[in-house]
Design a protein around this nucleic acid. Structure first.
Lengths: 158, 158
DNA sequence: TTTTACTGGTTGCGCAAGCAAGCTTTGGGT
DNA sequence: ACCCAAAGCTTGCTTGCGCAACCAGTAAAA
């Protein structure tokens, strides 16, 4: 399970800001963006994931994996986006259990329309406060952490 | 409002992992910790904040500020912790509107009991995957970002 | 072929969190 | 002395989210 000694000064100086970012960033991003575009950050993430997929099509479970959300959440978000005409849900021909979500033209248009607003929020919240050097040095560290978190779920306990 | 050009490769390589961390880390931390200690990460944060305050006492609004949570959330969390005997709420003598939350002995004991579990989760989720070098280089960047996020709330729009 | 186990998704439910509107106490004006 | 604005919470309501239980289709065993 690793080392159980207390966090040292540098670890603390990494951990506390990270915690703070985790609570503060979502709020900083969400509100204005929703007001400006009618899309949740989550909605946006789903649309992005679809837009980048071949055929703009992805399995529901694939969406869950690429966005990092739970299956149940994705299921509901996709339902909602379907109701709003931004994605379409097609039962998979090859496997009757599975569904694919497809980005509609309206969805793509909406995504493109939202992009500037998203960009503005991200720059205002994050990149306007960091130097190129910051981004270059911290990026890989964040990437390692993200990969580890994705890989961890299979119980690491007992 | 800053630069509105699209994110470049390095910015993207910073941003996507960060998003991922924000969604995945809370879950990685929360569940086991709650099961092991009966405390939410939020509860824990409140207890920590109190334990570090002089007299182990903090205004409700001070707690909101130091934890980064909304006033309404803190209000309810403190109520809950009070009901559980881990903190005590005292109306402030000097100002009848204000309340102070004080960490009780039981609360301190609970906090100390929870510490090893918290430590284990944090190490397993985060530090076990990073080198000392990672932590040293990325820490300050995260700190800058956290500070900026705290400072931003006063409308940055229009 | 029928039963059994598994996989992919959906739904019921509960919890965390925030916003907005409320209440109470303060601290000025007048 | 009185009113009025603001400070400091609190409470009602809505929303995002995940888990656990569930249903439907598939694949494997008997």
């Amino acid at each position: 399970m690793g080392d159980l000694s207390a966090l040292d000064a540098e670890e603390t100086a990494f951990w506390r800001p990270l915690m703070r970012i985790m609570t503060a960033l979502p709020r900083a991003l969400e509100d204005q963006f929703l007001a400006e575009t009618g899309l949740t950050i989550t909605d946006y993430g789903v649309l992005v994931a679809l837009s980048e997929a071949p055929e703009r099509l992805l399995r529901i479970s694939g969406l869950a994996a690429t966005t990092g959300l739970s299956l149940s959440r994705i299921s509901r978000v996709v339902d909602d986006l379907t109701r709003r005409g931004l994605v379409e849900k097609r039962r998979c021909a090859a496997d009757g259990r599975a569904s694919n979500a497809v980005l509609t033209e309206a969805g793509l248009a909406r995504l493109e329309a939202a992009y500037p607003s998203h960009l503005a929020r991200v720059r205002a919240s994050v990149f306007d406060h960091l130097s190129a050097e910051d981004i270059r040095t911290a990026g890989p560290v964040l990437a390692r952490l993200a990969v580890a978190l994705d890989a961890t779920p299979p119980t690491d306990d007992c």
